[in-house]
C-alpha cells in the first residue's frame, strides 16, 4: 500500500449530463502542499468535495487517509479540515462561538474546545474581534476565521478551495503566511486556485486542470521548465502597425497572440526585443518577465486562466 494521504485513480463526477470531473489520477504525499490550478469550471471544487467526503464519486477509486470515503466518510471527516469555496460560518454567532461550536461537532470536550478557540483566535489574528458576530467581519477576516475553524480538530489533511479569491492583496498575503506556517508544522494541504501566483507561492507540487481533466503535473519550476521558456517578452503594438504572429515567430521559440498583445517565448528577452526592433517592428510598449504558470496554462490549453 502506498503512503499517500490521498490517492485517486480514474476519479469522475457527473451532475446529470454535466461531467465536472472526467477521470483524474492524483497522489498527495504526507507533508506536501498540493495544488489544483485551473480556471472557473475546471472541476476543482467538485474534486475537492469528493476528497472532503461530502460528495459521492461517480466513478473511479479514491482513498483518503487510507480509507474509502464511500464507506468511512464520517471517520475521515473527523480527521480533516475543510475550507470551502463559499464561507459557511454561522453569521449570527460570535467569532469565538463559531470556533467553539464547530469543535463540538468533532466530539471534543468543552474545555478542550475553549482552549483551542483561544489559540486559533490568536493564529488568525482575531482575538480582538472574538466577541463580535461574524456579520460584522470583513471578507478577509471571515476567510481567516474559516481557516481557523478548519483547524479546530488538528487536522492531518487540510483542504482549501480558493482560499483567497475575492480578497485584497494585503489580506491574501496574511493568509499565505498562515498557510505557510501550517506547512512548516507538517500539515498536508490541498489548495485549489485560479491564481497562478498563489499556486507558485504555496504549492510544492500541482496539477493543471481544465475541462475536468489534468493537463500536466509537477512542481511550479518543473512545469515552467517543461512547458515554457525562461523569459517572456510581451509586446503591444499600435493596431495599425500590428505585425502578424508569423512575422514575429522567427525571433522567438514560440509566439502567443492575445487580443491586446503578443507573448514571445525566449531564453533572453532583451535580445529578442533587439531582434524584433532590428527587423523593423516598433512596439508601443514592451516588457520582459520570467515565465509563470500562467504561460504554462496558456501553452497547455490555449486559453488564459483568468479572463
Amino acid at each position: 500500500m502506498s503512503d499517500a494521504l490521498v490517492q485517486a485513480r480514474g476519479l469522475r463526477k457527473s451532475f446529470g449530463a454535466v461531467e465536472a470531473v472526467r477521470g483524474i489520477d492524483v497522489d498527495v504525499a504526507p507533508g506536501e502542499v498540493f495544488g489544483f490550478l485551473g480556471p472557473n469550471g475546471a472541476g476543482k471544487s467538485s474534486t475537492m468535495r469528493m476528497i472532503a467526503c461530502v460528495s459521492p464519486r461517480s466513478a473511479g477509486t479514491l482513498s483518503v487517509l487510507g480509507m474509502d470515503p464511500g464507506v468511512d466518510g464520517p471517520r475521515i471527516r473527523a480527521r480533516i479540515g475543510v475550507v470551502p469555496q463559499l464561507d459557511n460560518l454561522d453569521a449570527e454567532l460570535s467569532v469565538r462561538e463559531n470556533l467553539e461550536i464547530y469543535g463540538r461537532y468533532f466530539g471534543l470536550p468543552r474545555r478542550h474546545v475553549k482552549e483551542k478557540a483561544a489559540e486559533l483566535l490568536e493564529f488568525a489574528q482575531l482575538t480582538e474581534r472574538a466577541g463580535d458576530t461574524v456579520e460584522e467581519l470583513s471578507g478577509g477576516m471571515k476567510r481567516r476565521l474559516t481557516i481557523a475553524r478548519s483547524l479546530v480538530n488538528d487536522p492531518e489533511l487540510l483542504l482549501l478551495d480558493e482560499p483567497t479569491t475575492g480578497l485584497d492583496p494585503q489580506a491574501r498575503h496574511l493568509l499565505w503566511d498562515r498557510l505557510y506556517r501550517l506547512k512548516r508544522e507538517g500539515v498536508t494541504q490541498i489548495v485549489t486556485t485560479h491564481y497562478m501566483d498563489e499556486a507558485e507561492q504555496l504549492c510544492d507540487r500541482l496539477v493543471v486542470m481544465d475541462g475536468g481533466v489534468i493537463a500536466a503535473e509537477g512542481s511550479p519550476a518543473e512545469l515552467i521548465g517543461r512547458y515554457s521558456t525562461r523569459e517572456v517578452l510581451e509586446l503591444r503594438f499600435d493596431p495599425e502597425h500590428r505585425p502578424t504572429a508569423e512575422a514575429l515567430e522567427r525571433h522567438a521559440e514560440r509566439v502567443e497572440e492575445l487580443p491586446d498583445r503578443f507573448l514571445l517565448y525566449t531564453v533572453d528577452g532583451e535580445r529578442t526585443h533587439g531582434d524584433v526592433v532590428g527587423a523593423g517592428f516598433v512596439p508601443l510598449s514592451s516588457l520582459v518577465r520570467r515565465s509563470s504558470l500562467e504561460d504554462v496554462f496558456l501553452r497547455l490549453t490555449g486559453r488564459t486562466l483568468v479572463d
Binding site: 461550536i101 461537532y105 468533532f106 478542550h112 479546530v152 488538528d154 507538517g186
Partner: peptide
C-alpha cells in the same frame, strides 16, 4: 514530518443529533 494524529472523532448517531441541538441552543 511528524503530524500528530487529529483530535477529531466521529460522534455516535445520537451524539451527532445532540451537537446540532447544542449549536442551536448557542
Amino acid at each position: 514530518v511528524s503530524v500528530a494524529r487529529s483530535t477529531g472523532r466521529a460522534p455516535t448517531a445520537l451524539g451527532g443529533v445532540g451537537r446540532v441541538v447544542e449549536h442551536h441552543w448557542r
